[in-house]
Simulated scan of single mutants.
Amino acid sequence: MSDIGVILLDSDLYRPVGDVGNPDTFAFPVRYHRATGAYAPHVVERGASGLLDIFVAAGRTLVGQGARALSTSCGFLSIYQRQIADATGATVATSALLQAPLLLRMLPSDARLGVVTANAASLSDAHLEAAGVTAGERPRIELIGLEETAHFYPTVVLGQGRLDPTRAAPEVVAAATEAVARDPGIRAFLLECANLPPYAASIRSATGLPVWDISTMLTWVHQGLSG
C-alpha cells in the first residue's frame, strides 16, 4: 500500500535515484500515475495553461488506488495547488515550493532563500503566491535559474537526449555557488525542480548551506500520515 501518490508529467526522462519519479528515492512505497498529454515545456514555459483537468484526473486515479496524499513531478504545478486539493479531496503537496514560507520563518529575518528552478524566467510571483509566499516575503527569495544550462535544461525540460547526471551536476552546483558569490545573504537553498534532488548533497558540500527539496517534503508528509 502506498500513502503517497505522485502525478508524473508525460515524459520518458531518465530518473536517477533522488528524482521524485524514481521509487528508490524514498524509504517508503510511492505510487505513480502519468498525466498523459502534460508535457514539460507546456508546464514550465506556458504555466500549465489548460492542463488542470488532466492533473485532476490523474490525482483522482491515484486516490482511487489508495493514495492519501498527492504530489507531482514538477514544482511549477504549485500554480494548481488549491484546485487539485479541492478537486481530489486529498492532502496535496504539488511542489517543493510549499516549503518556502516555512523556511523563510526558520531563517533569520535578514537571510535570503535561494530557490533553484528549472526556469527562473517562467517561475512567476503567481507560482510563489500559490505556494504561500506573501508579497512581503517575495524580496527574500532569490531565483536561481537553470534555463541557460547546456545539458540540464535541454534534457530535463525540452526532452532533447538522455540526461547524464555527471554532466548535469556541475551545472547545478555552479548555479548555486555563483548565486552565493553574488548574494552572500543566501543562507539556504530550496530546489523547486523535482529532478534536482540528486544534486542536493553536492550543493550542500560546495556551499556549506542547507538544502531542501521535493524529497524532504514528501518524507515529512509521509511521516505525518504513517508515523
Rank of each mutant, 00 (worst) to 15 (best):
Ile144Thr: 02
Ala87Met: 10
Thr134Met: 04
Arg187Pro: 02
Asp24Ala: 15
Ser78Gln: 03
Tyr39Gly: 03
Gly21Asn: 07
Leu103Gly: 01
Ser78Arg: 02
Leu146Ala: 08
Thr149Gly: 07
Leu128Val: 03
Ala48Glu: 05
Pro165Asn: 09
Ala57Thr: 15
Arg187His: 13
Gly75Thr: 05
Leu102Ala: 12
Ala87Cys: 11
Pro210Ala: 12
Leu97Asp: 03
Arg162Trp: 01
Cys74Met: 11
Val116Glu: 00
Gln99Ile: 01
Val56Ser: 08
His33Gln: 15
Gly132Ile: 00
Thr117Tyr: 12
Ala188Lys: 10
Phe26Pro: 07
Val221Cys: 05
Arg138Glu: 01
Leu113Trp: 08
Gln83Glu: 15
Ile141Trp: 00
Leu98Lys: 06
Arg60Phe: 04
Ala194Gly: 08
Leu113His: 10
Cys74Glu: 10
Leu218Pro: 12
Glu192Lys: 07
Glu45Asn: 14
Tyr14Pro: 03
Arg34Tyr: 02
Arg46Cys: 07
Arg167Cys: 05
Gly185Thr: 14
Asp86Thr: 14
Pro197Lys: 11
Pro170Ser: 06
Val44Tyr: 13
Ala200Asp: 13
Arg138Asp: 00
Ala188Gln: 06
Phe152Lys: 06
Gly159Met: 11
Tyr14Ser: 11
Asp10Cys: 07
Pro165Gly: 08
Thr155Pro: 03
Arg105Pro: 04
Ser124His: 13
Leu128Cys: 13
His42Trp: 07
Thr134Ile: 09
Ser215Thr: 15
Ile7Trp: 06
Ser124Gly: 05
Leu102Lys: 00
Pro16Leu: 02
Ser78Met: 05
Gly145Glu: 04
Thr219Asp: 14
Tyr199Leu: 08
Arg140Asn: 02
Trp212Ala: 12
Ala57Arg: 15
Gly224Tyr: 06
Leu107Gln: 08
Ala135Phe: 02
Gly185Val: 04
Arg140Ala: 08
His127Asp: 00
Thr25Cys: 05
Glu192Ser: 09
Leu191Gln: 03
Leu209Val: 04
Gly208Ala: 13
Val172Gly: 02
Asp86Cys: 01
Tyr39Arg: 15
Val211Asn: 01
Trp212Asn: 01
Met106Cys: 14
Ala200Leu: 09
Ala27Asn: 13
Thr91Gly: 04
Ala206Val: 12
Arg34Ser: 01
Leu52Glu: 01
Tyr32Glu: 08
Ala111Val: 03
Thr166Cys: 02
Leu104Arg: 09
Val156Cys: 07
